[in-house]
Nucleic acid binder design. Structure first.
Length: 418
RNA sequence: GCUGUGAUGGUGUAGCGGUUAGCACGGUGGGUUGUGGUCCCGCCGGCCCGGGUUCGAGUCCCGGUCACGGCCCCA
């Protein structure tokens, strides 16, 4: 009875303080870059997610039929909802738009460390800007966030590549269209699955051994020079990535980013630059991932609009922050505890609390008859700054006794000077 | 789907065949005190469920349930 649904979490106030702290960092990083918040329902039509590809996300859909027989799903990610919202207003939006959200997302799968069935995923996106400047701006938001919680480029690395790398390689091998996005999904699992399994899957897609080894060697590239050597000097992927890295320098985040051609991301809709942030120690799964998805609206039946963004889960980053000792002790928040001595002064205590609250301070009022001992313990537990005592003698003089818990100093303060 | 570990007061835990089942936090009553944070004392409250072994099971065995990890699947 006290247990929730498997894979879900309860947030008690002490957990909520930490969550709010984290979310506040999300909010301020996004706002610092001029992004605006939006939201959408947790429940969407299942259709929005049935892309019938090999993506984990569509196979782990938390879906069911509602009482009207409609097939619905708890959103596994925010991007389709965002695309739906953008599409619905396509003519009316002043582009580009820079929007962010912190939606709760769901997936039905076996639970593991850092993988529940529910998590909060910070999403930051830019729509209507087709250049790599938008992609670089997105990465800048990310780094801004990392720095704001005390993480450094020694803790994390953002590996960057482009879907165009693989697209050009596969194009030269005659693989295009659907086979291309399927290949991306397989290749994304390279570090999770043994090499033989990857090869078997690629073979199944109709790729020969030579093609497979070409793919593998290109994906091993971690240097712009090597990439140019492999794709040629006229390669769009090369010039785009080259420009991006130079923009990263302008942003002053060059030490956070690295070229890594093996980054392709497991979602079918990516089309251009893609990136993932990982802990340098390599102990955790990806902290976040994102990239450009210029053709998503097209697959939903609308007119394409360039877009780029990232999704950032709350669970993995919290594990990293805990490992690094960067999670702060967030205090309860009540500045004052107001206590009326005895039931006769209950009303007086309420007057005092109201005056304090009107003055802009937060006050926790003791609602029942409690002993002094309990009151002190309570104030200490809350981490309150002051204890405001409404006592018979003082109150008869129209005053209260205020004790500063930190210093132990106390003084009598007239009611009208509260 | 496979596999490992675990389940002890409200919470976090110790106990590994015979204990009045221990400790901390909490709750509650009291002492000290300036009606007063520390300190001290009393009390409340527990072995996941069902079988079995044994003179005796929280402890060992079997089954179940749940939780937490790891893997597979994820085409």
């Amino acid at each position: 009875m006290t247990q929730g649904v498997r894979g879900t979490r309860d947030f008690y106030p002490e957990d909520m303080r930490v969550r709010n702290w984290l979310f506040e960092k999300f909010h301020s990083a996004a706002r610092s870059h001029g992004f605006e918040e939006y939201d959408a329902p947790v429940l969407e039509t299942e259709e929005l997610y049935t892309r019938k590809s090999g993506e984990e996300i569509t196979q782990q859909l938390y879906n069911f039929e509602d009482k009207g027989g409609r097939k619905v799903a708890l959103r596994p990610e925010m991007t389709p909802s965002l695309a739906r919202m953008v599409m619905a207003r396509s003519g009316a939006l002043a582009l580009p738009i820079k929007w962010y959200s912190i939606p709760q997302c769901w997936r039905y799968e076996r639970t593991q460390r850092g993988r529940g069935r529910e998590h909060y995923q910070w999403n930051v996106d830019i729509w209507g800007a087709g250049g790599i400047e938008a992609d670089a701006e997105i990465v800048s938001v990310l780094v801004h966030f990392f720095r704001s919680v005390g993480l450094s480029s020694e803790d994390l690395v953002i590996r960057v590549s482009s879907r165009k790398v693989l697209e050009e390689v596969l194009g030269s091998l005659g693989v295009t269209g659907g086979a291309f996005s399927e290949t991306c999904i397989i290749v994304d699992k390279m570090d999770k699955l043994p090499a033989e399994a990857i090869e078997a899957q690629l073979t199944e897609l109709g790729l020969g051994p030579d093609a497979i080894s070409t793919i593998q060697s290109v994906l091993g590239i971690k240097d712009m020079g090597d990439l140019e050597g492999a794709l040629g000097s006229t390669s769009e992927a090369v010039s785009e990535l080259g420009s991006m890295f130079s923009l990263f320098e302008s942003y002053g985040i060059g030490d956070w980013v690295e070229l890594d051609a093996s980054v392709v991301r497991g979602l079918a809709y990516y089309t251009g630059p893609v990136f993932e942030a990982h802990d340098r120690a390599g102990e955790l799964r990806a902290v976040c991932g994102g990239g450009r998805y210029d053709r998503l609206i097209g697959t939903l039946g609308g007119k394409d609009l360039p877009a780029t963004g990232f999704g950032f889960g709350d669970m993995v980053v919290m594990e990293l922050l805990r490992d690094k000792g960067l999670v702060p002790d967030v205090p309860h928040g009540a500045q004052d505890v107001v206590f009326g001595m005895g039931a006769g002064l209950r009303g007086a205590a309420m007057e005092v609390a109201s005056a304090i609250r009107s003055g802009g301070r937060s006050a926790d009022l003791v609602l029942e008859d409690k002993k002094m001992k309990w009151v002190f313990k309570h104030a200490e537990r809350l981490g309150a700054e002051r204890l405001v005592m409404v006592m018979p003698d003082e109150w008869s003089r129209g005053a209260v006794k205020i004790k500063h818990l930190g210093s132990g100093e106390e003084s009598e303060v007239p009611f009208d000077q509260l």
